[in-house]
Amino acid sequence: MRIKENNLLRKNIQRKILQVAAFGFTNSHVGNIATGKIYKGYWKNFCSPGLNCYSCPAAGLSCPIGAMQAVENTPRFGVSFYVLGFILAIGVIFGRAICGYVCPFGLIQEIFHKIPSPKKHLPKPFTYIKYLLLIVFVVLLPALLNDSYGIGSPAFCKYICPAGTLEGGLPILFTHPELRKKLGGIFSIKAAILILTIVGCIICCRFFCKVMCPLGAIYGLLNKISFCRIHVEKERCVSCGACHAICPMDVNPVSQPESAECIRCGKCAAVCPEHVISVGFTGNSSPN
């Protein structure tokens, strides 16, 4: 029992250190928050692997979902090979381990979930909403809804993304009174979605990741073939259910090691009394 707790604690600390480091690297211009200025340097040519709004004054990298829509909105491009290639490459190597270890908005959601409240599991059908949001708001609307100059708008950023409202909207509006005067109906929709997301995250771990994130949806699909994976020695499993019970994403790693929801956090491996689960890269996944 004690060994199990120590394993879990060690795993949690290792993961938190990586998450905080990735958060700091992605948002290295913290000083800009006070002034509301945006970093305009070279690194904005590159996307972060996780979801992080490029309108956040602290952001040092671009957001892959925002960047994908921005290129789609440019009439001479249509589809973004650059961003799609980047997401595909990262996804095929790491799968949703990016969500578990690197994504800044994933860490923010975990912090919200620490707020004391009744905790609930989410019914599985809700997890399919993110695929719908990906297809409609990231792929179709930005490509199809054009103004008279043929320029589209980033529909996911505009109508949905609570990461944009929280990381970009609040600090920018706080420091730019002239922009506050222009707030209207769209901001009300986005503010309502942000409140729903925060309440959702307090009650249900990573509510946004499970239900709404288009980037998580792509990485989830790539989980099935990614180099980083879960290995389970099923013949040694005693079906105690400890792994399923601890999983923050409601996955049973024994029956669905390739689940699109698994963020490779390794909690299941840490609590397994028989040490039959391991998380790692193909050919290099040693049991805990």
Binding site: S55, S62, A67, A70, V71, P154, C157, Y159, C161, L179
Partner: peptide
């Protein structure tokens, strides 16, 4: 295209769309 979008305040992201 990515760079230009990322170095300016994105009105859609902050909710002014």
């Amino acid at each position: 295209s990515v760079f230009v979008k990322a170095i300016n305040i994105c009105l859609e992201c902050i909710g002014l769309g």
